[in-house]
C-alpha cells in the first residue's frame, strides 16, 4: 500500500492534534480544580455517553429498530451488568425488528 506525501502529512498533523486534545485535559486536570469544576467533571462521563447515544439512536428511518435494540440492551445491562451480553441482545433485537419490518 502506498501513501502520498500529502496524505501522510495530513495524517501526521491530525494524529498530533488529536493527541494534543487527549493529553491537554490530563495535564490541566492534574492541578487542583475549583470545587464547582470538580463536581461538574464527575458528571462528564454520564453526559458524554448520553450525548453520544441519543444522536446514534435517532437516525431517520431507523428509529424503531434502534430504540427497540436500546430497550433490549438497556434491560440486559441493568439486569446482568455484562457489556457483551447487552451488545449481543441489542444487535439481535435490532436485526429481528428489521427483519419483521421487511427492510
Amino acid at each position: 500500500m502506498t501513501v502520498s506525501t500529502d496524505h501522510l502529512a495530513l495524517i501526521l498533523t491530525l494524529a498530533a492534534l488529536i493527541y494534543l486534545t487527549r493529553i491537554a485535559g490530563l495535564l490541566l486536570g492534574a492541578r487542583q480544580a475549583p470545587p464547582a469544576v470538580a463536581r461538574a467533571l464527575h458528571y462528564v462521563p454520564l453526559a458524554a455517553f448520553a450525548a453520544l447515544i441519543v444522536p446514534g439512536l435517532a437516525v431517520p428511518g431507523e428509529i424503531v429498530p434502534r430504540l427497540a435494540a436500546a430497550a433490549g440492551a438497556g434491560m440486559v445491562a441493568l439486569r446482568f451488568g455484562k457489556l457483551w451480553a447487552a451488545q449481543l441482545v441489542g444487535m439481535a433485537v435490532s436485526w429481528a425488528v428489521r427483519a419483521a419490518a421487511g427492510s
Partner: peptide, 11 residues
C-alpha cells in the same frame, strides 16, 4: 477528549 482528560484527572 479534552473533557475526558479533565474528568479522568479528578476521579
Amino acid at each position: 477528549h479534552l473533557l475526558y482528560g479533565l474528568s479522568l484527572a479528578t476521579w
